[in-house]
């Protein structure tokens, strides 16, 4: 990297506006949430916190079955959406990696599901999964007769699966694009050599293609995990947390406590726990990105 040592205050002056906004919009909220998490504060009862209560909000979270429910929902959602997104993305990438006009057009369109607002994604799928006039409901009912009378979003596991599927629909094509980019970087001779050595299609995938894109694959898995843990918008528009509390992932749970029940102290404590959890993943991610950056 080419960096020049200019002296004087100018280098701080042009950085200042960004620093001021970033302190206000990222550091301040986190410190505020940390402080509020040790306080008893229901916004409906008082506009100010009503005193320090130590770790009570944290112990309350650890003893709250609804909190653990949201942790479980987040975990299952994350595992499902990450693994299926990656698998479907590999399948799409292998389909579209070869050259061809139709494939090129399709490749250009892979960004669309990802670019759609997640809130709109949720509504779109809610419409398509409707038991009376939903197209997916009709198609599945025709293909698999045993599903004919099942309300797809009606059961707990069904709702969670379709929530994950909505996420997969947005992400798998995008991840496929990343994989295609990685495959394009590999010299075609590598595949030709493997072919001469007589590997079959499965071996080509298992021992040549996947190992070669492994760094990218791991990076995307990490990134997708972080984004899955952050899921919120489409929960509200697809299932609104239901049926029961079966799709209340952690962000939705914090939202409910903070902005439906106005338990600011309790919601803040959950936020701190969530941030601590995210730091682990973000740490690994940042380490990898920074390493790549200094090599560039």
């Amino acid at each position: 990297m080419n960096s020049v040592i200019y002296r004087g205050p100018k280098k701080w002056i042009i950085l200042a506006p960004a620093l001021i906004i970033l302190v206000a919009m990222t550091i301040y909220p986190i410190f505020n949430v940390l402080i509020v998490s040790f306080q008893d504060w229901n916004l409906l009862k008082s506009p100010e916190p009503s005193g320090l209560i130590g770790f009570d909000n944290y112990t309350r979270a650890f003893q709250d079955p609804d909190f653990w429910n949201s942790v479980g929902v987040t975990l299952i959602f994350t595992i499902m959406s990450v693994s299926l997104s990656i698998i479907i993305a590999i399948a799409i990438a292998l389909q579209l990696y070869p050259k061809g006009i139709y494939r090129t057009i399709l490749k250009a369109c892979l960004i669309f599901p990802y670019a759609i607002s997640p809130a709109l994604k949720g509504y779109t799928w809610r419409f398509m999964l409707n038991p009376h006039y939903g197209i997916i409901d009709k198609i599945l009912g025709t293909l698999i007769p045993s599903l004919q009378d099942v309300v797809l979003l009606g059961t707990k596991s069904g709702a969670l699966f379709w929530l994950a599927y909505t996420e997969i629909w947005g992400w798998a094509p995008f991840i496929a694009l990343v994989f295609i980019g990685a495959l394009d970087m590999i010299h075609p001779d590598v595949f030709a050599a493997a072919k001469i050595d007589g590997v079959n299609k499965y071996q080509m995938l298992r021992f040549v293609k996947i190992p070669l894109i492994l760094p990218v694959l791991l990076m995307v898995t990490l990134l997708k995990t972080i984004f899955s843990v952050k899921v919120f918008d489409q929960i509200l528009t697809l299932t609104n947390g239901g049926p029961g509390q079966s799709t209340e992932a952690i962000n939705f749970f914090i939202y409910k406590n903070g902005f439906k029940f106005f338990e600011m102290g309790y919601a803040s404590a959950q936020s701190v726990l969530l941030i601590l959890f995210m730091i682990v993943f973000a740490g690994v991610y940042i380490k990898t990105v920074m390493k790549g950056d200094s090599n560039a």
């Binding site: 970033l22 919009m25 990222t26 301040y28 909220p29 986190i30 505020n32 949430v33 509020v36 972080i226 843990v229 952050k230 919120f232 962000n251 914090i254 939202y255 903070g258 902005f259 600011m264 919601a267 803040s268 936020s271 969530l274 941030i275 995210m278 993943f281 973000a282 991610y285 940042i286 990105v289 920074m290 950056d293």
Partner: peptide, 20 residues
């Protein structure tokens, strides 16, 4: 730089609590 990157992982619901 680490600060810039890490902001992308802060859940928005956390930031909105104090600002609300």
């Amino acid at each position: 730089l680490i600060w810039l990157l890490s902001t992308q992982f802060i859940p928005p619901v956390v930031i909105v609590i104090p600002y609300f």
